[in-house]
Computed example of a mutant assay.
Amino acid sequence: MKKLLLFDFDDVDVHRLISSGAGLNETFRTLHPDPAAFSADEDKWITQYRQVYTAHGQPLIKSYPGAKEILEHLKASNIAVAIISNKGVSAVKTALENNGLFDCLPAEFIIGDNTPGAMRKPHPGSFEDVLVPLLIARGVQVEPKDVLVVGDTVADLKFAGNIGCRACWCRYGYGDKKECQDLKPAFTVDSLVEIKAIIMDQ
């Protein structure tokens, strides 16, 4: 018989972990009332979570309004777009497919926590060691000053700072508002549609 464990989490703690870009391992270990017990069955916890997430979480994911419009605009304008996520690549690809966005960027430009060489944001490794070589291989020369990181969390904004580029903070997302504001992003938007004007002005 399978057992279901129920824990009472503090919403503030959960929100803080999401905003920080913490991975599943760190999140579960932090929230579990007995971290040692979690560590003993870490792989089982992660596997079970991913199964539940695929079955019940993915169908609930909806893209923000304007996502398709901005991605199609960038593609038509021949502006390189990449997704660097702390989630697994398969989860990101499934979410894109379910929302009709998968064809808006090259699949190889979707970088996640199981991509060889990738590092969790805000570490710059996923950009410097994975994305930049992929772009160069396609004949695209990239300088940090020409890059705009669009994100909603502290991890995203610190990631932008660590690679030396500008950040656009989406304040409607999961990020802690005060922490994100204190990082002084170059741009702040309340919808994805606003990003189009930022890009056209550059």
Rank of each mutant, 00 (worst) to 15 (best):
E143R: 01
A95N: 04
V132L: 09
V150A: 06
A36Q: 15
Y64I: 11
K177A: 14
S191A: 11
V193N: 05
A155H: 01
A95Q: 09
K62R: 14
F38C: 14
T30I: 02
L131N: 11
R120P: 00
I110S: 02
P65M: 04
S191K: 01
E143K: 04
G125H: 07
P106V: 05
F109S: 12
D8N: 11
A76P: 01
D129Q: 14
P185G: 11
F159Q: 04
A137I: 01
A82F: 01
L74N: 07
P124T: 09
K93C: 14
L183N: 02
K93L: 11
V92D: 05
K62N: 12
G161P: 02
E26P: 10
G117F: 03
H123A: 14
A167L: 05
F28L: 10
P185Y: 03
D43I: 06
K145I: 05
G125A: 12
A80H: 08
P144W: 02
V193Y: 00
N114R: 10
L131I: 01
Q51C: 13
P122I: 04
E72I: 02
V89H: 03
D10E: 13
I83G: 12
K44I: 11
A95L: 05
K184E: 14
I83K: 07
E179T: 08
I46S: 08
P59N: 10
F127G: 08
C180W: 01
E194W: 03
P185K: 01
G173T: 03
A137R: 10
D34E: 15
M119W: 00
T54R: 09
P106T: 04
W169F: 06
C168N: 04
A107H: 05
K44Y: 08
P35N: 12
F109C: 10
L192Q: 07
S39Q: 15
G100C: 07
F187T: 11
N99F: 02
V12C: 15
G88D: 13
F9P: 10
D41A: 15
G57F: 02
N86R: 01
Q51A: 15
T153C: 05
L101R: 11
I110E: 03
L60R: 10
D129P: 00
L4P: 07
K177E: 15
H123F: 02
F7K: 07
E72L: 09
L135A: 12
D129C: 03
Y174M: 10
D13F: 00
A82D: 08
L157Q: 00
F102S: 12
V89L: 03
D201A: 14
C104S: 15
V12G: 07
C165F: 07
N25K: 09
N162H: 04
D190S: 11
